[in-house]
Design a protein around this nucleic acid. Sequence first.
DNA 1: TTGAAAGCGCTAACAT
DNA 2: ATGTTAGCGCTTTCAA
Lengths: 335, 335
Amino acid sequence: MKTTIYQVAQEAGVSISTVSKVINDTGRISEETRKKVKKVMKELNYQPSVVASALTGKQTKVIGLLIADISNPFYAEVARQIENRSRERGFHVMMCSTDNEEEKEKNYLSLLTRQRIDGLIVASAFHNTDVLAKVIQNQKYPVVMIASDIPKLPIHSVRVDDYQGSYLAASHLVQLGHKRIAIIAENIRSNHQRVTGYKDVLGEYDLPLLEEYMVQTEATNEKGYEAAKQLLSLENRPTAIFAGNDLLATGIIKAAKGLNLDVPKQLSVVGFDNTILSTVLTPALTTVAQPIREMGSKVVDLLIEEMEQPSKYKQRLLFTPELIVRESTASWDRK
Amino acid sequence: MKTTIYQVAQEAGVSISTVSKVINDTGRISEETRKKVKKVMKELNYQPSVVASALTGKQTKVIGLLIADISNPFYAEVARQIENRSRERGFHVMMCSTDNEEEKEKNYLSLLTRQRIDGLIVASAFHNTDVLAKVIQNQKYPVVMIASDIPKLPIHSVRVDDYQGSYLAASHLVQLGHKRIAIIAENIRSNHQRVTGYKDVLGEYDLPLLEEYMVQTEATNEKGYEAAKQLLSLENRPTAIFAGNDLLATGIIKAAKGLNLDVPKQLSVVGFDNTILSTVLTPALTTVAQPIREMGSKVVDLLIEEMEQPSKYKQRLLFTPELIVRESTASWDRK
DNA sequence: TTGAAAGCGCTAACAT
DNA sequence: ATGTTAGCGCTTTCAA
């Protein structure tokens, strides 16, 4: 049925250890036997079993990826970059969508551990940090984070400078003359940072920080829609809304349309992530871009480095965000 | 370091085979020892190694997924549904984006085989069907397809009725009074069917089939944009364009805007897939919906069935498409 | 009801 | 330069 190393050895008239050596390019083998063995492997269409070799302590060549939601365009893009880079480095990716729910996070974590992954990339909330902390303590495999971070855990992380990104976005709005700026964000760490940036900007410009202008909700366009509808029906409604991500911004623009408010004339909207949605929307969305490609590639490299040689200190990489001004923001002159 | 079955056995004062039996719920074990063993497993935080058990011939609990592009919203949605259902059934998903390129398809196939997956779900073109045919012949694991099909291969497949879907879409346009209807589609099997449906409708209504109205290109909004720009600069330009998928439709609408053509007044556009893009676009896109959730769930069930009990005949399931009329299509009165 | 032992396919000393 | 052999952690007869 399945060809094993024994059959190759027999057919080639050598021992299995010789075959093993030519497979892994270890030890010293004469050019002659190497060729013969390789030839037989071809003929028999032999594929070494990763399972068997993993059992002897070698790598499984599988990286686990815990990601919030693969059907969210931002995460899909992140996942794709991670997959690309992993493949270049000879690894596979096992993807798990957690919806940022603790139950799923736990569940997947335990399943992945059983599977003997070589490393784990996390792009999920882990509101309960203990769950992840345990995995790190166990040290069965290295863990790195992307697009999020947990300061109190000793872990490499790669993300955009959320604070700076939101600082750019909020400043942009203020400089356009907006004074009543609301924010709709998600309850995850990256978004908390974005809220902080927003608050700081408003503070610097002596603009009032209204509780009712700060909404926390889930990252779907429906939720963005609802939150925006509520904000826009306020007596003193905002003239600009900063969204924690493009998906929310999408919902906001929809809500504005539903209320017959012109974007950007009557309402400016800024998003975050620069996903495909931002270019597709009408008006095209002003948003904060993250260098997803570089980040995805880097996080894989960091993980593999860590597998080869655990570092004593942890890197927290902050990539630089860029404000992409499109059509959804305009100046606000009225008093 | 890692707890093994031996340590559990020792701690519980039984043999490893006894432990194995309580893990797998096989053989006859007294309630008493079962409890004791379970207790020890908890205490030692024992996680059976899937790798070791796979080596003895059991399942790896991993399903491979060969998908065109996980960052395309349609495939992302498909992937998410497959992941959800797989998880419910106790399986993991190893995702591989192929971009419909033969090299990547081959490459991933060989890697997945080494990894000893239990089954494979394919949502990739396989223009070279031999590559996939070989995998099926080898019978190392069952293979099923989703959102595509290869008629000449003995394989379960789950897809929407592409012909009917495009028939609906094209009829809709004809009934709105359009006579100059173009189509931009991708070079994959599902899209070929969609083109056929389009042709048949035009034929039935005695509308001319112009070569220049049929464009084949890749599934990105950029390509859709380019193709549309070309179509719309034709002397006798189409009054409606049917897109093989929403991503292409997105590009078409953008092109129309660039040329200052009003959609739908001066140009009607129909998409396919009913992804998030179709609701986000302005005007909202008339498109053909696929029951992705059901399809994803079904394909996983089919695969698992096949793992348990290979069937002698193959099922080709056609789900019913639904035309969702939104704002991008309007009647055409002018002669 | 339980345990001993062979074996899954491979790697890595250790011999030769 | 090549082969022998002892595991890796688990499942599964077969005995007891």
